[in-house]
């Protein structure tokens, strides 16, 4: 490959919008979950379990986790793009980040649906 500087990948808008949308989901969830905890005041494990075993709470929690991971993907990818210059290293880090976040998504699903 030659050393010419190439730009013009024609993406970025969707990620920028997604970062805002996922941020909104996370803020709504934070208010929602704090409200639930304030109302129910869980004192033991059984109450904690029953809160998150509830269908809508489970769904919303999973949505929160997915939003968090997508948000983190865009942020961490920006970090690699800013500071890691060799393309091969950057690509490797991108792939590892995606694998890690995909793994986390499966993990949180397993935790939530085990309750």
């Amino acid at each position: 490959m030659n050393n010419r500087i190439v730009v013009g990948a024609h993406y970025g808008l969707k990620d920028w919008l997604a970062q805002r949308a996922t941020a909104a989901v996370m803020s709504f969830y934070s208010v929602f979950i704090v409200a639930i905890l304030l109302v129910l005041k869980p004192a033991d494990f059984e109450i904690w379990r029953s809160i998150f075993a509830n269908g809508p709470v489970k769904f919303f929690t999973f949505l929160f986790a997915l939003s968090l991971f997508y948000h983190a993907w865009i942020g961490i990818r920006d970090l690699w793009m800013d500071y890691v210059k060799p393309v091969s290293v950057r690509l490797t880090l991108h792939v590892l980040t995606i694998l890690l976040l995909a793994g986390y998504s499966g993990w949180i699903a397993a935790i939530l649906w085990r309750l």
């Binding site: 730009v7 013009g8 990620d15």
Partner: peptide, 13 residues
């Protein structure tokens, strides 16, 4: 079109 790019425009944080 010229600006829709992860580097050219979306590096602004």
């Amino acid at each position: 079109d010229n600006l829709e790019d992860p580097y050219r425009l979306f590096r602004c944080h």
